[in-house]
Amino acid sequence: MNSMMELAAHTIPLMAISIQIFAIILFVEAAIHKSVTYKDFVGIISGYRLIPISLVWTAAAFVIFAEYLAIISLLLMLPFLKYLGAVMLVGYAIAIQINVVRGRTEIDCGCGGQSMPISQSLVSRNLVIAILLAWSTNTVGFAGLVGYGFVYWILVCGTVLVGYLFYLSYNQLCFNQSLQSNLTRKEL
């Protein structure tokens, strides 16, 4: 029993920190991509048809600002604000879900990186990441990790790397699915 406890005591912070680093990478990638292609991002937001056109520019700037804020809050483990990342992912999931229900699946996701159409699988992806992120920020922060050794950080790097590769593969599979349905759909 004791050894099980010890195992959990080592594994849980490892997973939690890996998830947080993974989320930070995602947000950094997304935030930089959105700031660089700001005009495109405005177009993507208006494609979602959730806010009046007159507010789209402000909303785009606000989203980008919130993403940078989420990165900083995760790094510094700010109280309350550290959950911002998870909340934003849920927000994106809701926005995507609304448009999936509306049947507007051809719009660009705007998830950062490769542009791809939205789908139900993207909603699930966002929710899974949001849950994992909320759990991990609740569990442990970077500050509690000072005492860990070299091997520990190698393990963290490995976990993040594999996690990120799985994330990329999942994205690509979602993209492939839409390409495949393009091939077989009846109407043009």
Binding site: G158, L161, V162, L165, F166, L168, S169, Q172
Partner: peptide, 8 residues
């Protein structure tokens, strides 16, 4: 790691 690279 090699396998996840291959999958991607």
């Amino acid at each position: 790691i090699a396998l996840s690279l291959a999958v991607f």
